[in-house]
Every structure is written in structure tokens, then in C-alpha cells.
Design a binder for these strands. Structure first.
Lengths: 191, 191
DNA sequence: GTCTATAGTATGATAGAC
DNA sequence: GTCTATCATACTATAGAC
């Protein structure tokens, strides 16, 4: 019998708490003390579950990264490049809309980026795969720039406080439209 | 006679050094000790010129912010809204191309953003003015999202390491094109 | 006015007791 | 699994030399 307690264990609560704090204060702006206090434990208790702050950072981001990996994998199975771009774009926008501020924190904070790169250096880099898919096989600089603007712009715009009151469905629509314009994809015909 | 020594004073050298270190390691990743060591002085000497790290952060960003303010001001003098958007877009792209990594650091790092907001809370927020100009008078959510994607995307793409080997002129051209597509501006006719 | 020496407080992190 | 105690380093701050 797997010890799957219904009551959330400390590790799970820790990740949820860290997620909230990261979203509010940023990763670098969140100290282990803050996490420990919010959990009602001491710093050392936090260190029992995670050897380092980078490990927490990575663990919080892991579900999102796995999802991005799945999107890339799925896109690779599509034959037409246009369909690949559309799939990646839709997947990213969905993620951004769902997480909002978190996406911004994780795609912008330099410390976070370094921590994630360190943990992903042996695996294929997800962001590179995303960019590769969006840019296409030929190394056209114009396409590369457009892809970078799209990826960074969508992630950061989704977490922008000024757009916090835009409803999810509407934000998703406008982000998709922005991505399509940047990547030269035609507007999907209204089904 | 103003004491304007030709040899750069410590304060100026400090800001130049901080700019380099910020660009390389990010703001949060740069300690006062690193700045002091690079300057060949002690931490306390740094502390003499600037009461806090936030002050250094602000002072380093100040020229860029003043330039952005000028761009906004100039744009306000133009009559047609299309011309305003074009002017703001061109100004931002120029800045990003010129500074590259710095623009990314300053528009992404949450700690930096908070430091700058703190110092600019009494003045009108430059970023808000930029967004307002790009979005237009009517509060169209689609235009707001596009403006945010453009601003964030251009700033971060310019500092992206993968695009570091793209020549300045080419990067400027592609960033402008990306911004025009997002903001619905027609391609400028080849003069 | 400019800097050194020094100290205080917070952080990420480790070792070991319970 | 959680805690106390402790460390090295970071940012901040003051006192005083030149």
C-alpha cells in the first residue's frame, strides 16, 4: 500500500506555499525564512525536504516544464509545420493564461533561468526546442527574432498586473492573436 | 569653475562598472562586493557614493529612463496616432539594440522593477506612458495585450543570448517589423 | 570630501540532537 | 521529520582616518 495520505504532506504544502510566494515576491525576493514562516516550521525543516533553494525553484517549475515538453513532443508528431507552430503557440498560451504571474517570474528572473538551466543541462533544453519549432528548419534571423519576441512577450504579458483583470478566455484569444501575427500564422477560421 | 575633472571620478566609474556587472550577472546576482572589487576599493567606499544598492540600480537605469521619457514627450507632440506609435516603437527598438542585455535585465528582473517603481512613484511612470501611447485612447483589451507583448517581447528578445550574434542593424530591422505586426502598423515604404 | 575599518542583521546552508 | 545551533556570505550602517 502506497503511503498516500489524504492530508497534504509537508512537501506538497511547501511547494504550494513556495508557488504563491514566488508569484507574489519573485523567486529571488522570496527567502527560505518566508517559506518556513508561512508553513509554520523552521528553515531547517525546509532544508530536510529540499537540499537547496534551487531545488525548490526547480520543483515548483517542474509540472509546467513537463507540460511544455509534452507540447513539444506532440508538435513533433505533426506533419505540417504550420500545424506544429499552431500547436506550440496554443499550448504556451494556455499555460500562461492558467498560471499568469508565475509564467512571467519564471521566464524573466535571471536567477531562475540560471537555476533551471543548471538542472536541465543534461536533458534537452525545453525552451530551445520550443524556439526551434517556432523558428523552423532554416535559420532565418527574422523568424528567430519573431519567435523570441513571441515567447518572451506572451509569457511576460500574461503576468502583467495591468492585464490582471482581463478574463481568461479573452486574454487567451488576444495572446493567440499576437502570437499568430508575429509568427505569420493566418487567423484560424471561426469554427 | 566647476570641478569637472577629465579623469572619470569614482562615481562615474562605479556606474560603468555596475552596468557591466548587471548586464553579465543580473542585478540580484551582483553583490556590492563584486562592484567594489572590480573598482579596486572597499564596499564602504561604494556605500559612500550610494546609500543603498537600489540607489545604484536606479542610477544605472536613469539615463535609459530619461531617454524613454524624451521619446514619450516627443511622441506626444505628434498629431497622428500612427506617427506616435511609430516614434515610440523606433525609440524603444533603438534603445534595446544599443543596450541589449541591459534592457532584458531591467525589464524582467522583479527586484529591479520594484526598486524602480519605488523611485518613480511620485513621477509619472514612464512604462505606463509608453503603454498608454501604444494602446491608444480607447481601452481596447486586444490593443493592450498586443502592446504588452510588444514591449516585453522586444526588450527580452534584444537581450537574448541566442540572438547575440545578430548584427545591430539586422536586429533593429527585425524587432521593428515584429513591433509593427503586433501593433498593426503597416511596413514603412522603402524610402 | 573621500575613503578604510569595523560591526550589525539577514540570508542560504550544514551538522547534529530529539 | 523536525528542531537548535552554527557558519559563511550578503546588504546595510557607523565611526573615524586622511
Amino acid at each position: 500500500m502506497t503511503p498516500r495520505t489524504v492530508a497534504p504532506d509537508t512537501r506538497t504544502r511547501l511547494l504550494e506555499t513556495a508557488l504563491e510566494l514566488f508569484t507574489t515576491h519573485g523567486v529571488e525576493g522570496t527567502s527560505l525564512q518566508m517559506i518556513a514562516d508561512a508553513l509554520g516550521v523552521t528553515k531547517a525543516a525546509v532544508y530536510y525536504h529540499f537540499k537547496t533553494k534551487d531545488e525548490i525553484t526547480e520543483a515548483v517549475a517542474e509540472p509546467a516544464l513537463r507540460r511544455l515538453g509534452t507540447i513539444v513532443q506532440e508538435a513533433g508528431l505533426l506533419r505540417r509545420r504550420g500545424a506544429q507552430v499552431d500547436h506550440v503557440l496554443a499550448g504556451i498560451v494556455d499555460m500562461v493564461v492558467e498560471h499568469r504571474a508565475l509564467a512571467a517570474v519564471y521566464s524573466s528572473d535571471p536567477g531562475v533561468a540560471r537555476a533551471l538551466e543548471r538542472s536541465l543541462h543534461d536533458e534537452e533544453n525545453v525552451k530551445d526546442c520550443l524556439t526551434e519549432l517556432l523558428v523552423g528548419p532554416d535559420q532565418d534571423p527574422a523568424a528567430a527574432v519573431a519567435a523570441h519576441v513571441a515567447l518572451s512577450g506572451i509569457a511576460l504579458a500574461g503576468g502583467s498586473p495591468e492585464l490582471a483583470d482581463v478574463p481568461d478566455e479573452e486574454l487567451r484569444r488576444h495572446l493567440l492573436e499576437a502570437g499568430r501575427r508575429l509568427l505569420g500564422r493566418p487567423r484560424r477560421p471561426p469554427a
